[in-house]
Design a protein around this nucleic acid. Structure first.
Length: 502
DNA sequence: TGAAATGTTGGGGCG
DNA sequence: ACGCCCCAACATTTC
């Protein structure tokens, strides 16, 4: 389709929003606005082959985040166009409908997205529509961080040393105040029609009071963290009974705030406040782990399904639906594990320390493949993020890059006593145990009134499970390994995970 | 960003 | 005063 281009009707530019649902420090948006009127577009793509479509909890977040972004665009004289379908087909269609001259976007790093976007770029080029992509979600592009021997880092510390010493904290891009609108808007879906919110049952009732999706919520969360929790972060971050973490993860996943903005905020905080360096540095290290996860996923795209260490492809897993259900529904009989799984279900979130404990329990006490846990988290976490989720599960399993060794098996009683010393976290999420005294709270079966509590006995014995896991580990270690080399794909579970429809 | 088993050390009670 | 035992506290090693 060719239309005459005039000063009155310049050809618009499509700004394709994906996981960059913000106006501030958004390079694709800013660059597009320099060239012409823009058509902000979001595509709900559940159908491109290989796609990890947003899980149940993530869709709740997306619904609200899109509403927030749409309102912010309207306030600036623009509008958010919503379309559903295969992204390639939708983009081509909107470009044709609007006679767009170009499509601008910020890059994604998931393997399916990289492949899809490359195809879209080629298809648009064939129709004389140019494409321009930018970095909005990483401190450094994964292909720019290399070891001295020009290979990707496989160990976190040298990776982070290299990246952070090179990173320059440059000025951020301000949010545009006004946005040029096209002469006509293309059709848009109503967000309600996408049915991103669950109805029967609505299991998100506990979400809205705890979360505020959208760019404003992200900014407020950042400010709250700097004001209330940064001082003390290094120690308090490990305490699920305290508000010691940033809770920025879902905002980061959807790009309502980016790591450059976080770096900038912490650098400013360090300039203004004495004594926060160690805490700020510690927090930035966590941003570094996110960066490392993206780096790994880019260089080892198979890691969402396959063990990075191929020795684990021979691990003798036990595929027990009954045990998986006990874990996922918070009925293992180990208080800290059950508290975490119930917090996840009720709020769409789980404290990081408890994620490690629950993941270790699924993998090492129950011997269920980490991929199954990763799928559950993908569906239930508001901050579900393919890179972080895959890298973190492999880290706990011991199959990943720079991972915890498999024999590092968390003892759920000791972890509870160390990090929830008063049992406040457990009592909050496992009300059956509210009346148990602190001495017995993490091993309730030792309490004299245990049988009257209505709380189940442990589904596995810790000592036995531990030695069994170590036995199983012996069966697969010492295999010659190069990351990503051959071996069978872990078989799919023999049972399904229709999590949100119990 | 473990836990458990095993080894070492040193203070105190006691014959 | 001394050796012996106990054991807590810490250190090392093993999984």
């Amino acid at each position: 389709m060719v239309t005459r281009q005039t000063a009155m009707h310049p050809r618009p530019i499509i700004v394709w929003f994906r996981q960059d649902l913000r106006l501030a420090d958004n390079p694709a948006l800013v660059e597009a606005l320099k060239v012409g009127p823009i058509i902000p577009l979001f595509v709900l793509d559940d159908v491109t082959p290989g796609i990890w479509k947003p899980g149940g909890a993530s869709r709740w977040w997306l619904h609200h985040s899109l509403q927030s972004l749409a309102a912010d665009l309207v306030a600036r004289g623009s509008k958010l166009i919503l379309r559903k379908g295969t992204a390639g087909a939708v983009i081509a269609s909107v470009a044709a409908e609007t006679n767009a001259q170009a499509v601008y976007w910020n890059r994604l790093y998931e393997p399916y997205a990289i492949a899809r976007d490359a195809q879209i770029k080629a298809a648009l080029a064939a129709n004389s529509v140019s494409t321009h992509s930018f970095n909005a979600s990483l401190l450094a592009e994964p292909w720019t961080v290399k070891t001295g021997s020009d290979s990707p880092y496989k160990v976190f510390t040298p990776f982070w040393r290299s990246l952070s010493s090179r990173y320059r904290n440059e000025p951020l891009l301000p949010a545009p105040r006004k946005m040029r609108a096209p002469s006509a808007w293309p059709q848009s879906d109503a967000i309600r029609a996408w049915q991103l919110l669950p109805t029967k049952p609505d299991w998100t009732k506990g979400f809205a009071s705890r979360w505020r999706p959208g760019e404003h919520g992200a900014h407020q969360t950042m400010v709250n963290f700097l004001d209330l929790a940064l001082d003390g972060y290094a120690a308090n971050r490990d305490r699920p009974d305290m508000a010691g973490t940033s809770r920025l993860s879902p905002h980061l996943h959807w790009g309502e705030i980016g790591p450059r903005q976080i770096w900038h905020a912490l650098a400013t905080s360090m300039d203004r406040n004495d004594g926060v360096e160690t805490h700020a540095t510690k927090f930035l290290t966590e941003i570094g782990w996110r960066e490392f996860a993206y780096h790994l996923l880019y260089h080892f795209p198979q890691m969402t399904e396959r063990n990075l260490n191929p020795a684990f492809e021979r691990f003798p897993w036990m595929d027990s639906e009954k045990r998986f259900k006990a874990w996922s529904s918070g009925r293992t009989g180990y208080p800290i594990v059950d508290a975490g799984m119930r917090e996840l279900w009720a709020t769409g979130y789980m404290h990081n320390r408890v994620r490690m404990i629950t993941a270790s329990f699924l993998i090492k006490h129950l011997l269920i493949p980490w991929q199954h846990g990763a799928r559950w988290f993908w569906d239930t976490l508001l901050d579900a993020d393919l890179a972080n989720n895959s890298a973190s599960w492999q880290w706990v399993a011991g199959s990943g890059a720079d991972a915890a060794p498999f024999f590092r098996i968390f003892n759920p009683m000791i972890q509870g006593e160390k990090f929830d010393p008063d049992g406040r976290y457990v009592r909050k999420w496992v009300p059956e145990l509210a009346g148990v005294d602190t001495k017995h709270i993490h091993r309730p079966w030792t309490a004299s009134n245990f049988t009257s509590l209505g709380y189940h006995s442990p589904i596995v014995d810790h000592v036995h499970a531990r030695s069994q896991a170590l036995e199983a580990f012996k069966m697969c270690r010492n295999t010659a390994s190069s990351p990503g080399a051959g071996g069978p794909i872990v078989p799919p579970p023999t049972f399904s995970y229709r999590v949100r429809e119990r």
